[in-house]
Each structure stands twice: as C-alpha cells, then as structure tokens.
Design a binder for these strands. Structure first.
Lengths: 152, 152
DNA sequence: TGCAATCCGGACCAGGACAGTACGGATTGA
DNA sequence: TCAATCCGTACTGTCCTGGTCCGGATTGCA
C-alpha cells in the first residue's frame, strides 16, 4: 500500500470545510469535522506555514483559505504536509546514502516514476475531492448519499 | 512523503538482476545485490506468491522470471509487495471504518486520485527502470553515469 | 538409497516513524 | 486590562516495517 499520511487526509477535510465560510477558529473546525482539536490546530499550522491558509491571531481570529480550492492542486497539500512527493527514499540522485549504490541496477531510475506521480497529482485540485461529483466520469455510482457536508 | 516500502525497492532490484540470467539461487542474488540473504529470500517468496517469479526447489534450484520485465508493469510489483495501490486508508467505499464517516466531506473522493496513480504506474514497466535509457523521452539527462549494473 | 542443496511457510523481535497531546508564549480585539 | 486565539516546541505511546530465524518439504546428484 502506497501510504499517505493521515494528516494529509485531515488537511483535505479541513480545507474543504474552510471553503466559503470565511474565518473559522480551530475548535469550531474540530467540532465540525470530528477531528481532535489539538490535531486540527497542528494540521492548520502546517498548512499556514505552507501558505495554503492564513492564520488570524487575537480574539475573533481563526483560519481562512488563501486561495480558492479550485486553484489548489492536491500535490501542494501533500507536499506541505508529507514533504516532497517521492515514491522512495532512493531518489533525486542522492549520493552516498545507499551502501549498495554501486551494485544497484536501478539507481536513479525511479525519477520517471516520481515524475508520473507528481503529474497525476497536479492535475487534481482539492475542489475535485470536495465537489459532489459535478461532472462525474463513467464510474460506479457512490450508492452512499450519507451526510456529505453535514453542518454539525 | 509518499512512502513506498523498501521491500518494493528490493523487489525491483532483484527482478532486474534476474533478467536474462536463467535460474539464480537466493544467496547468489544476495551477493550480487548487496541485500541481506534472508531479506532476499523474503522478497522472492512474496514475488513468487504473486506469480512474478518462479521458484524451483531442490538442488540447483533457484528463481527465475516468469515474464520478461518489459511486460511487467511496475504497478504489479508494488501491488504484490505493498498490497493494493491506494493512497490512503480511507478508500474504496469502505464503510464503518471511520468514525467521522458522516461528517467527512471527502468520503470516497480519493478514488479518482487512486485511479490516476494506478494509471501512472501501469504505464511504466520494470524494464523501464532497469534499462540504461534505450529510447529516453525528452527529459533532463541524468548527468550521472555512475556504476549502473556493475557486476560485483 | 542416502545426502546435500534449495525453496517454503510461519513466527518472532527490534527499530523508527507517525499520530496525538500538552505546555508556555505572543498577538489581537473588546 | 482581559480574554480569546494562534504560534512554537517538546514529549509520549502506538503501530508498522524491516530484518531474522527455525523447522519442514522438495528435488537433483552421487
């Protein structure tokens, strides 16, 4: 399994929650999403550091999006939370990190793979994940109306 | 960072090592690649279980490829070693696994992302990783001849 | 027929990374 | 002046991963 950090998942959830709501404080977001408050604060701090959201201090402060979600590629979120997108530790022509460097037949060969992944992720915005299937491609229907975007 | 298990890395190395060499025993492969012998055995067992290599028992036994690498998409190797390719634990319309299921605005939305990743990986074969750039697409040159495929 | 080489299957253990928590400080608005 | 809120850092417990080991089954050769 190609694991993505849980925090990235939270980040996407929180970002979609911030959309169109103006400024929201961390505790409110925690209540709305069901994510523990300290964790929400942690994720938002990371996102603020990357410039994806703005933190407003003081009373009546909170967080707000610095860009609409439709202009925010998923790759940026992942890069902000999980670090640079790379499939393996053995990438980007790093030298001297691997003791099998000289006998390894695939040295540096992962680069095209990483490039493919990055490209795939750049084509998807956070808005695509949040939208209730505006123009869904031919795929199995969700069959789960559930309570998408319930305003707790 | 979008982590890929180290074992997958080993798997690719071992597969490229098996290419065109006929039957090879695990200890030989270990010596050739610099990977610890028990680990080599472990990886090969996994690959054999997935049908990517064949294990031949008995004296003069060993492993050999069941398919040429050029016909082996990377996605199969990853799926064999790391399990099904999926970016997050919250996928494939799994129900009841997430306590925030009802308030989560991105439920099931990761599917297109996973599909994109899968597609990107399906287009790359193991041979692409091993080959010394037979017909490289327009991309930045490696600028690192290094010691690719040194026969230790 | 016996022996050695090799794969097979499972269980086991240690290390590291990650998620989650807590605390004190700085900033802002009422 | 005070309360609300974000900011930065450090800490801890848990889970996953990588790596190791053992006994058993199978096969080829002398």
């Amino acid at each position: 399994m190609l694991r993505l950090s849980k925090l990235t998942d939270y980040a996407v959830v929180l970002l979609t929650r911030l959309e169109g709501e103006g400024v929201q404080a961390a505790p409110d977001l925690a209540a709305a999403t069901g994510i523990a408050e300290p964790t929400v604060a942690k994720v938002l701090k990371i996102l603020a550091g990357a410039g994806l959201v703005e933190g407003l201090r003081g009373a009546r402060g909170g967080y707000r999006l610095s860009r609409p979600l439709a202009e925010l590629p998923l790759s940026e979120v992942i890069a902000a939370v999980d670090g640079p997108i790379a499939l393996t530790a053995c990438v980007d022509s790093a030298v001297g990190l691997c003791e099998a460097e000289n006998t390894c037949p695939v040295r540096g060969r992962w680069d095209p793979v990483n490039r493919a992944i990055r490209q795939a992720l750049s084509g998807i915005t956070v808005a695509d994940l949040a939208a209730p299937r505006p123009a869904a491609p031919p795929a199995a229907p969700p069959t789960r109306p559930a309570a998408i975007a319930a305003t707790a």
